[in-house]
Simulated scan of single mutants.
Amino acid sequence: MPISRIAIGTADELTHPGALKAALAEFFCTFIFVFAGQGSGMAYSKMTSGGPATPAGLIAAALAHAFALFVAVSVGANISGGHVNPAVTFGAFVGGNITLLRGVLYWIAQLLGSTVACVLLRFSTGGLETGTFGLSAGVGVLEAVVMEMVMTFGLVYTVYATAVDPKRGSLGTIAPIAIGSIVGANILVGGAFDGASMNPAVSFGPALVSWSWRHQWVYWLGPLSGGAVAGLVYEIFFISNTHEPLSAVVDY
Rank of each mutant, 00 (worst) to 15 (best):
G51L: 14
M147N: 13
V150L: 15
E13F: 03
I182Q: 12
G126K: 11
V218S: 00
Y157D: 09
L101Q: 06
N186F: 13
A92S: 08
L120V: 07
A25E: 00
Y106P: 03
A185C: 14
I79W: 03
M198H: 04
G169Q: 13
G113A: 06
G131I: 08
F35K: 01
P17C: 03
W220E: 07
V104L: 12
A43P: 05
V84K: 03
A178L: 12
I239D: 01
F28Y: 12
V189N: 12
P2M: 05
G96S: 05
A68I: 08
G172A: 14
W107K: 01
H65I: 15
G172R: 15
E244M: 08
A64N: 11
A192G: 08
E148T: 11
V141D: 06
F123M: 12
D251F: 14
S40C: 15
L69P: 09
V139R: 07
T115F: 04
L100F: 13
T130Q: 10
E148S: 10
A196V: 08
A207C: 03
L111H: 04
L155W: 13
N78Q: 04
K21F: 05
I182N: 11
V164P: 08
V150W: 07
P245H: 02
T152E: 06
F33R: 02
A230L: 06
A43I: 14
I177Q: 02
V218L: 10
P17N: 04
S136C: 04
I6C: 00
C29H: 01
I59H: 02
T173Y: 15
T152W: 10
A109T: 00
F31H: 03
L58C: 06
A109M: 10
G51P: 13
E148F: 03
P86E: 00
P200S: 03
G131H: 07
E235N: 07
G95P: 10
H83Y: 14
W217V: 06
C29Q: 03
V250G: 07
Y234N: 05
S247G: 12
S247M: 05
I6Q: 05
L100T: 03
F35M: 09
Q38S: 14
L246E: 12
E148W: 09
I179Y: 14
G81K: 02
A228M: 06
G227R: 02
P176G: 14
T173I: 15
K21L: 07
L105F: 07
G95Y: 10
I3M: 12
F193K: 13
D194S: 11
M47E: 10
Y44V: 10
A185T: 11
H65K: 14
L100P: 03
